[in-house]
Amino acid sequence: MEVRTIKVFTTVDNINLHTQVVDMSMTYGQQFGPTYLDGADVTKIKPHNSHEGKTFYVLPNDDTLRVEAFEYYHTTDPSFLGRYMSALNHTKKWKYPQVNGLTSIKWADNNCYLATALLTLQQIELKFNPPALQDAYYRARAGEAANFCALILAYCNKTVGELGDVRETMSYLFQHANLDSCKRVLNVVCKTCGQQQTTLKGVEAVMYMGTLSYEQFKKGVQIPCTCGKQATKYLVQQESPFVMMSAPPAQYELKHGTFTCASEYTGNYQCGHYKHITSKETLYCIDGALLTKSSEYKGPITDVFYKENSYTTTIK
């Protein structure tokens, strides 16, 4: 009895394709271990004539594949690729409408935090270190965002349907971005203890939790000093293409032309909904596939993004 075979390709990165001759009487799992086709788990399936010449994702289970996976995804987590594939199996079914010149995501599976993050990423200057993220990001900007969303979920250790947080998501993504040249110098002034300067680099240099107003941050924000008295913390120097200011959701007025974009969060910790506000020729609110415009805006804002380049204080 002759062994019926077909020729397929296996890959971990969709760049390096490895030619395989597979036995049609055995499952993919018996031949390769966990195997995925377009995100779908085909591990328990036997090869079919229609699979001839198709590319299958496999887990990096030998040295060659491990090197290829690390170079593309910059992670050695053995569960990463499987999590990416199972997320992709959902995100490829989502709709990605162009809204006001940006790629958004039609609401499904509690994905409003991903839509808000995706919209924000198209408006701030950011370059990702893992080629996987950078490639998928370019495709997302062009309207094909399924891979990018699935990668975000995998890097953030999230599953489809789980509630997510924009600030946490951005923080994970910033860790995989090139923020080497970003720098922030802060000064804390206390009447009792004097003053202390701190220099922050990388992710810490672009994120701040405690106030939404970048102007206020430049002037000074009140913080408790270690001595128990009130101290003032203010920005001395900022070198970065953008800054992200966050605070627990509270009524906040966004003035046209003073910011790049913002995240609105309605609801409580267990259950809520994100919308995205962007400042173009007027203010726009993007909620999944829905767009509304207004000249002014007041609502429960939790993150505001500002364009920056270089700032030095005039406070002496």
Rank of each mutant, 00 (worst) to 15 (best):
M1I: 05
E2D: 09
E2T: 10
V3M: 15
R4V: 14
T5R: 13
T5E: 15
T5G: 13
T5L: 09
K7S: 12
K7L: 10
V8Q: 03
F9S: 07
T10Y: 11
T10P: 00
D13V: 01
L17I: 08
L17S: 07
T19D: 14
Q20H: 11
V21K: 15
V21S: 09
V21H: 07
D23C: 12
M24L: 15
M24R: 07
S25T: 14
T27S: 14
G29Q: 08
G29R: 03
Q30G: 09
Q30E: 03
Q31M: 13
Q31L: 11
P34R: 05
P34F: 13
L37M: 13
D38N: 12
G39A: 14
A40L: 12
D41K: 06
D41W: 05
T43V: 05
I45G: 07
K46P: 12
K46Q: 05
P47R: 02
P47F: 04
H48R: 10
H48I: 09
N49Y: 10
S50W: 14
E52Q: 12
K54S: 10
K54E: 04
T55D: 01
F56P: 00
Y57L: 08
V58R: 11
V58F: 03
P60M: 00
N61T: 13
D63L: 07
R66H: 12
E68I: 04
F70L: 11
F70N: 08
E71D: 12
H74Y: 02
P78F: 07
P78V: 14
L81G: 05
L81K: 09
G82E: 12
G82R: 08
R83V: 03
R83E: 00
Y84Q: 07
Y84S: 01
M85I: 08
S86T: 10
S86G: 13
A87F: 02
H90I: 11
H90S: 12
T91C: 15
K92M: 08
W94M: 01
W94R: 00
K95W: 06
K95L: 10
Y96I: 04
Y96E: 03
Q98R: 10
Q98C: 12
V99R: 03
N100F: 09
N100K: 12
G101V: 00
G101A: 02
L102V: 07
T103V: 00
S104W: 15
S104V: 01
I105D: 15
I105Y: 02
K106T: 10
W107I: 12
W107A: 15
D109W: 00
N111W: 01
C112K: 04
Y113S: 15
Y113N: 03
Y113F: 08
Y113H: 10
A115G: 02
T116N: 11
T116K: 00
A117K: 05
T120E: 05
L121V: 14
Q123Y: 00
Q123S: 04
E125N: 08
L126P: 11
F128L: 04
N129I: 10
P131R: 03
A132T: 02
A132F: 00
Q134W: 03
D135V: 08
A136V: 02
Y138E: 15
Y138V: 14
R139E: 10
R141Y: 06
G143I: 02
G143Y: 00
G143S: 03
G143H: 02
E144K: 10
E144D: 07
E144P: 01
A145D: 04
A145Q: 02
A145S: 02
A146E: 03
A146Q: 07
N147R: 11
N147V: 04
N147Y: 12
F148W: 00
C149R: 02
A150R: 01
L151H: 01
L151T: 01
L151A: 00
I152A: 15
L153D: 01
L153N: 03
C156M: 10
K158Y: 14
T159K: 12
G161L: 00
G164R: 06
G164M: 02
D165A: 15
D165N: 03
D165Y: 11
R167V: 08
E168C: 02
T169W: 03
T169G: 01
S171N: 08
S171F: 08
L173P: 01
L173W: 00
H176T: 02
H176Q: 06
A177L: 10
N178W: 06
L179I: 08
D180M: 07
S181Q: 11
S181H: 15
S181C: 11
C182H: 12
C182D: 08
K183F: 07
V185F: 03
V185M: 08
V185K: 08
L186Y: 13
N187D: 13
V189S: 04
V189I: 15
C190V: 02
C190Y: 01
K191Y: 09
K191V: 09
C193W: 04
C193D: 00
G194Y: 02
Q195H: 14
Q197M: 10
T198K: 07
T199L: 10
L200Y: 08
K201F: 11
V203L: 09
V203G: 12
E204G: 08
A205V: 02
A205W: 01
V206P: 03
M207N: 06
Y208S: 10
M209K: 09
M209S: 15
M209I: 04
G210M: 10
L212A: 07
S213Y: 04
S213P: 07
S213N: 11
S213I: 06
S213C: 08
Y214M: 11
Y214T: 04
E215K: 07
Q216G: 05
Q216F: 00
Q216T: 15
F217W: 09
K218E: 09
K219M: 15
K219T: 10
Q222S: 12
I223A: 13
P224Q: 13
C225N: 06
G228S: 03
G228H: 03
K229W: 09
Q230I: 12
A231T: 02
T232Y: 06
T232H: 04
T232V: 11
K233A: 13
K233D: 04
K233Y: 10
L235M: 01
L235I: 09
V236M: 08
Q237T: 13
Q237F: 11
Q237M: 07
Q237K: 12
Q238T: 07
Q238D: 04
Q238C: 01
E239D: 14
S240K: 06
P241T: 08
F242H: 04
A247D: 05
A247V: 04
A247E: 04
P248V: 11
P249F: 03
Q251S: 15
Q251R: 10
Q251K: 12
Y252T: 13
E253I: 13
E253L: 14
L254H: 06
L254A: 02
L254D: 01
H256T: 10
H256V: 09
H256F: 06
T258Q: 13
F259D: 05
C261E: 15
C261P: 08
A262R: 08
S263M: 08
E264G: 15
T266S: 11
G267W: 06
G267S: 13
Y269N: 13
Q270F: 10
Q270L: 12
C271S: 12
G272E: 06
H273Y: 05
H273V: 01
Y274A: 08
Y274G: 04
H276Y: 14
I277Y: 01
S279N: 06
K280Y: 02
K280S: 13
T282F: 12
L283K: 02
L283P: 09
C285S: 09
C285P: 05
C285Q: 15
I286M: 06
D287R: 03
D287K: 06
G288T: 07
A289G: 05
L291K: 06
T292E: 15
K293E: 10
S295R: 12
E296H: 13
Y297F: 08
Y297L: 06
K298P: 04
K298L: 11
G299S: 05
P300M: 15
I301F: 04
T302N: 05
D303R: 02
V304E: 05
F305K: 05
F305E: 06
Y306M: 06
K307A: 15
E308A: 09
E308L: 14
N309Q: 14
N309G: 12
S310T: 15
S310C: 14
T313Y: 12
T314R: 10
I315V: 15
K316L: 13
K316R: 14
